[in-house]
Structures are given as structure tokens and as C-alpha cells.
């Protein structure tokens, strides 16, 4: 057993060891913990988007939809049927993967722009469907979801997701996804079943987004269709772009940065009564400007390498 494998085993142990002190409000600031957990959840979401957009080169603006499916399905099970956390997460993962698959098959034959519109439509359909589903709380949202997520579970999930993505990029399917991103037509000419691999990427990405959603639901203990709007999808895109599309560690770091930055902004805004009234708009303006600045001036993101084409 070499040191790399030992390190791999040490990570869960380390997470588990610091989980107790960090979750204790007397030892660690709960507000800071809240942010740290959300950073982990968003890092998973950013990874999920990066897998489709950064690695495979397909544009999705409906990732909040996959997240919503994961969040609602797991919360439904733990709330109504008292499922333990792990099976609930597994079910949520499978369901969102199935959604990714179902969305994938008809839409992935579409070229880039049409795909964007179709994923947007998908996200909206999921949200409106939940808004009309009485068993899912409809417009009042789901309250009192047991708080089962912890520092340990979130960061263990993130570590597994990171490992999965890195392993994928080194494997043959991962290389095929990169080939599709670089030149879809050429990949097809090489005998690659492009649609099959695009659907694969979409399902895997939906899986991760579903896990992110499930962890999120069991941390905040309250979910509402408004948490999964188009704006959420944009936020996820911003994370991936800022971190660096196609980079794995970069995307995860982007998720963390984009969670942390608005917190500073919020502290700034709340001191001014006029600004704090409009803080939601200002936050979106800030996000949009950031997105624009990055794409125009540093399209490779903070952690991406410049491509030498």
C-alpha cells in the first residue's frame, strides 16, 4: 500500500475526527459552520455542472431542476417514511440520475443552443410541477425535514465526488467526453456514439446535483420551490465559470468562493437600509457582473490553464 492510498483512507478519518468539535456550537461558531456546509454543498453542485459544461462542453441552464429532484425526493422519504439518511440519499441520487437520463435522450440530440433552452424548460417544469404537488408541500414548501447532514457527510460526499471526477477524467469514458467537447463531429467520425456519452455525462452530473440537493435539504430542514429557480441555475454556472470550466479542483473551489463572497457583500449591505431593501437585486447584479468579467477577461477561470489553440 503506497502513501497515496493511505492518504485516501486518512481523509474520511480526518473528517470524522473534526466533525464533533466543529459541530458543537460552544466550540465553533454556528454561523461559520453554516457557511462551511453550504460551501461544501455548492462545491458538489459546481462539480456537477462542470462535468456537463466544462468537461463535455454541453450547456445546461437547468441544474437547479436536478438539485430540486434530489432535495425533494430525499426529504419526502425521511420526512414521511423515516428513512435513514444514506438510503434516502441513494434513492435521491438514482431518481435524479433517471431524470438526467430522461432529459438527456430527447434533448441531447439537440445542438448547443437548443439544448440550453431545453434544459431551461426542464428546470422550470420541475419547479412548476413541485409547486403544484400537494404531497410535496406545493407553494408552502417542505418544513421540518430532519437535520441529518453534517460537516462529515457533506465533505465526505465532496471528497467522493472529487475522486470520482478525477478518476473519470483519467479513464476512457472521460477522455471520450473531452473529445466530444473539443470536436463533436471529429469524435463521431472516430466511431464514438456521441449521444450515448452525452447522456452518460448528463446522468452522472444529475446524480451529483441530486446528492447536493439532498444534503442541502437535510441541512436547512426547509425547502421551497423558490430555492430552485432559474437564478439558482445561474449561480451554479457562475461557480463553475469562476473556478474554471473543465478543471475539477477549480470548479469545487469556485463553488466555495461564490458561497463565501456574497456573505461579505451581505454584511456590507445590511448596514445600509436603502441597499438592504434591494439586496437581492444587488446580489444578482454582482453575480452577473462577475460572470461577465470572468468570461470576457479570464474565460479559463481562476484555476484553469490557458488553452493554447
Amino acid at each position: 500500500m503506497n502513501w497515496k492510498k493511505l492518504l485516501l483512507l486518512a481523509i474520511p478519518l480526518f473528517l470524522w475526527l473534526i466533525n464533533y468539535p466543529i459541530s458543537n456550537p460552544r466550540l465553533f461558531n454556528p454561523y461559520a459552520l453554516q457557511i462551511i456546509i453550504l460551501m461544501g454543498v455548492n462545491a458538489i453542485l459546481a462539480l456537477s455542472w462542470d462535468l456537463v459544461a466544462g468537461v463535455t462542453g454541453q450547456f445546461s441552464i437547468g441544474h437547479a431542476g436536478f438539485m430540486a429532484i434530489g432535495a425533494y425526493s430525499s426529504a419526502f422519504l425521511t420526512l414521511n417514511y423515516h428513512f435513514p439518511f444514506l438510503p434516502a440519499i441513494l434513492f435521491a441520487t438514482l431518481l435524479s440520475a433517471a431524470a438526467g437520463f430522461v432529459v438527456g435522450i430527447p434533448t441531447l440530440r439537440l445542438r448547443g443552443d437548443y439544448l440550453a433552452i431545453a434544459t431551461l424548460g426542464f428546470g422550470e417544469i420541475v419547479r412548476v410541477a413541485i409547486l403544484n404537488a400537494k404531497s410535496l408541500g406545493a407553494a408552502t414548501g417542505l418544513k421540518g425535514i430532519p437535520i441529518l447532514s453534517s460537516f462529515f457527510s457533506v465533505y465526505l460526499a465532496l471528497a467522493i465526488a472529487l475522486w470520482l471526477c478525477l478518476a473519470l477524467l483519467k479513464s476512457q469514458p472521460g477522455r471520450i467526453l473531452l473529445a466530444i467537447r473539443e470536436d463533436e463531429l471529429a469524435a463521431q467520425m472516430m466511431g464514438i456514439d456521441v449521444v450515448k456519452y452525452k447522456v452518460f455525462a448528463f446522468s452522472l452530473s444529475a446524480c451529483l446535483a441530486g446528492i447536493g440537493g439532498a444534503l442541502y435539504a437535510h441541512w436547512t430542514s426547509f425547502i421551497h420551490p423558490d430555492s430552485f429557480t432559474f437564478m439558482k441555475s445561474i449561480e451554479i454556472i457562475l461557480m463553475g465559470v469562476v473556478g474554471g470550466m473543465g478543471t475539477i479542483y477549480g470548479a469545487a473551489a469556485g463553488g466555495m468562493i461564490i458561497t463565501l463572497l456574497p456573505e461579505g457583500l451581505r454584511l456590507l449591505l445590511e448596514q445600509n437600509p436603502v441597499l438592504s431593501q434591494n439586496k437581492e437585486f444587488i446580489r444578482m447584479l454582482f453575480f452577473a457582473s462577475l460572470l461577465l468579467i470572468f468570461i470576457l477577461l479570464r474565460p479559463q477561470g481562476i484555476f484553469g490553464k490557458k488553452e493554447g489553440v
Binding site: 462542453g57 450547456f59 441552464i61 461577465l292
Partner: peptide, 13 residues
Amino acid sequence: LSLLIVAVAISLL
């Protein structure tokens, strides 16, 4: 993809 992201960003702006 970059052009599309810019379009979405301008729209939000």
C-alpha cells in the same frame, strides 16, 4: 458556450 453565458449574464444585468 462562452457567448451563451455572456448573453445570460447581460440579460441578468
